[in-house]
Computed example of a mutant assay.
Amino acid sequence: METSAEGAAEAHGSDTAAAVGDGVAVTAAGVEVVGAEAVGTAAGAGVAVVARAPASLSPSRASDFMQCPLLYRFRVIDRLPEKPSEAATRGTLVHAVLERLFDAPAAERTAPRAKSLIPGQWDRLRESRPEVVELFAEDPEGERLARWLGEAERLVERWFALEDPTRLEPAERELFVEAELDSGLRLRGIIDRVDVAPTGEVRIVDYKTGKAPRPEYAEGALFQMKFYALVVWRLKNVVPRRLQLVYLGSGDVLTYDPVLADLERVERKLLALWEAIRLATETGEWRPRPTKLCGWCDHQAHCPEFGGTPPPYPLEVGAAEAGGAAQGRMGPD
Rank of each mutant, 00 (worst) to 15 (best):
Y228C: 07
P258S: 00
Y217D: 13
E219C: 00
G251H: 08
A229I: 02
L248E: 08
A221R: 09
L222E: 05
A212R: 06
L263N: 01
T255Y: 02
P240W: 02
R234D: 04
P215T: 10
M225V: 04
T255E: 15
K211D: 14
G251A: 13
L245A: 06
F223Y: 12
L235G: 07
Y247W: 14
V259M: 07
D262E: 11
F223P: 00
L235R: 15
V253G: 03
K236S: 09
F223S: 09
R241A: 15
T209Q: 06
S250D: 09
L263C: 08
A218E: 13
E216M: 07
P240F: 01
D252G: 02
L230K: 03
L243F: 07
R234N: 04
L248M: 10
K208P: 08
L230R: 04
Q244R: 15
V239Q: 05
Y217V: 05
V232Y: 09
K211I: 14
V232D: 07
Y228M: 07
N237E: 15
L248H: 06
A229E: 00
M225A: 14
V246L: 05
G210N: 09
P213V: 12
L260W: 06
V238H: 07
G249W: 08
P240M: 01
L245K: 01
V253T: 15
V259Y: 06
A261M: 10
R214F: 08
P258W: 01
Y256T: 05
V238M: 04
K211C: 08
L248A: 06
W233F: 15
W233V: 01
P240R: 03
Y247A: 04
S250I: 14
V239A: 03
V231E: 00
L263R: 01
V259L: 07
P215R: 11
L254I: 12
V231R: 13
K208H: 12
F223G: 06
L263M: 09
Y228K: 08
E264G: 02
A212E: 11
Q224Y: 04
L243Y: 05
K211Q: 12
V231T: 15
P215S: 09
L243M: 09
Q244T: 15
K236V: 09
Q224S: 13
L243G: 00
A212P: 10
F227V: 04
P240N: 04
K208R: 12
K211F: 07
Y247T: 03
G249L: 12
Y247G: 00
R242Q: 14
V253H: 10
R242F: 04
Y247C: 09
G251C: 08
G249C: 11
Y256G: 02
V238D: 06
E264D: 10
S250T: 13
S250V: 10
M225D: 13
A221T: 06
L235T: 13
L248P: 14
D262Y: 07
